[in-house]
Design a protein around this nucleic acid. Sequence first.
DNA 1: CGGCAAACCTGCGAGC
DNA 2: TGCTCGCAGGTTTGCC
Length: 280
Amino acid sequence: MPELPEVETVCRGLAKAMTGEVIARVDVAREKLRTPVPKSLPAIAGARVEEISRRAKYILLRMNNGETVIFHLGMSGRMTIVKKGETHAPEKHDHITLHLKNGARIVFNDARRFGLVDVEKTERLDAHKLFAHLGPEPLDRGFTGAYLAQKLKGKKVAVKLAIMDQRLVVGVGNIYASEALFMAGIDPERAAGKIKPAEAEKLASCIRAVLKKAIAAGGSSLRDYVQADGELGYFQHQWAVYGKAGEKCPGCDCDIRKTGGIKRLVQGARSTFYCPKKQK
DNA sequence: CGGCAAACCTGCGAGC
DNA sequence: TGCTCGCAGGTTTGCC
C-alpha cells in the first residue's frame, strides 16, 4: 500500500494517538520480518514518545530514552489504532503490538513481511544502514529541477526507473512515478540522460505536486486521519493513469477505440501506465 | 559504478 | 469448487 503520501498520513495518525504517551508493553508475535525484530524492542517499555516523524518511507518514533523506533511498512504493512476499551479481532499477520500506558494499542500487521522494525540510538540515526544512502526528500528545498537535471545527466536508465531510485530522491514509488511523468508529459521510457533541463524542472515540480495532492487527499478524507476501524493511511485515491490501462486519458479527447487509451508497460518488473499521445 | 534480474513473502482475482 | 497463474503500492543483493 504505502508510498510517501500514505506513510505521511500514517505518521500523522500515529502522532495524534501516541505523542506524549508512554509505552507500557511491546508484544512481538512474529520476529521474522524483512529483518529480524531486534531483541531490544520490548525494552522501550517505560519510555515516552517525544515525537513522530518520517524519513523517506520510514516512520520514526523518537523516544525520551535516547532511542528511536523505526518502522517500514513494506508493500503490505498497516497500522491500526485500538483505543482504550475498543476491541480488535486478532488478524493472521498482526506481528507487533505496542501497548500504551493510557490503554490504547497500536497494531502493526504485514502479510508479506517486507516491512521491518528497528531500534537505533537517536544520535546515530543518520548513520543507520537504512538511511545512509538516501537522497533528498522530494518536498524539501534541496529537491530542485537543477538538482534533478544534474542527477539524471549521463544516465542511460529509463527516467521512470531513475526517479524511483531512493538514492536520487526518496519516496517516489511505482504509482507516483507514473503519475508524475504523466503530469509532466514525459515518456517513461526516455533515457534519463536525454531529459532536458527544462523538462527536469517540470518533472521535479510535478513530483512535488502529485505527492502534495495525495497527502492532502489523505488528510481530508479521513476524520483525524483514522478510519472508523482505526486503520491508518488508506484513502480514496484519484489517479490519472495508474491502473487505468485501456481507459481514456484524462488529458486527451482522442477516440479511445482508435488509440487504445492509456497503455501499460513493464519496466524493471513493475507496471508503468502512460498516455503515448500526451507523453513524449 | 551502471544496469538488470532475482530474491524476500502472502493474498487475491481471473481464467479454466 | 478448486486449481494455477499473474499480479500487487518496496528494497536489497548478487551477477555481469
